[in-house]
Amino acid sequence: MISFKDLTLAYDRQPAVHHLTGQIARGALLALVGPNGAGKTTLMRAIAGDFPAAEGELKVNTKRIAWLPQQADVDRQFPIDVRAFVAMGLWARIGAFCDLGRKGRDRVDEALAAVGLSGFGARPISALSGGQMQRVLFARLMLQDAELCLLDEPFAAVDARTTEDLMALLHQWRAEGRTVIAVLHDMDLVRRHFPEALLIAREKIAQGPTAEVLSEANLTRARLALASDDRAALSPRAAA
């Protein structure tokens, strides 16, 4: 589904991820983990086609990609109700001009029901709590009917019950044959729910079965690799 070879992604010549090689199989449920500043979001943006490779190669064998960015990207004060917001997930079918139709409206209601928000359709998005907004974003993602689902910190600031409910959806999507990649910081959650993980710290530290990837040795290695990168970037020689 996704393969990268010697992939380097950089902001203004400063690498966020460098020399990454590996692949992610179709139907995987994979957690992308690493310390803050490891390059996880940048890698997700590159897979979504929103960030160009500075060097190397990145191949994604589908164009049906759904991307759930960090919540801060949504203007919660915009005057739009939940139903209209979720309906945007049908963009691939309705585009800029077509009407939703009866079928489209039914699908929106079904998606809201699937995330536990039946009856919330007429509410403005500004009236939702953080957890409810995250459910709304999942409902929109469902409607995109994508082969590849990319989720950037989908459970940040969400309570345990909402997290468990939304995790059940991720398992359901995987059972339907979709590939799901999620950036996560909660290692317990990753160990409980994700069979595979990719640990990065600007470079690849480990990839494979979660229990092996999240070993204490690998996590320590990731922290040290990032600290060493930062020291190198701040050294007088690098500055010169």
Partner: peptide, 23 residues
């Protein structure tokens, strides 16, 4: 009337619009 939907989406969630279209 023509650009209403993409314009709304550009306001409320520009990242999503970039991910689903070239508008």
């Amino acid at each position: 009337a023509v650009v209403w939907r993409p314009l709304v989406l550009e306001c409320v969630d520009p990242t999503f619009l970039r991910s689903v279209s070239r508008w």
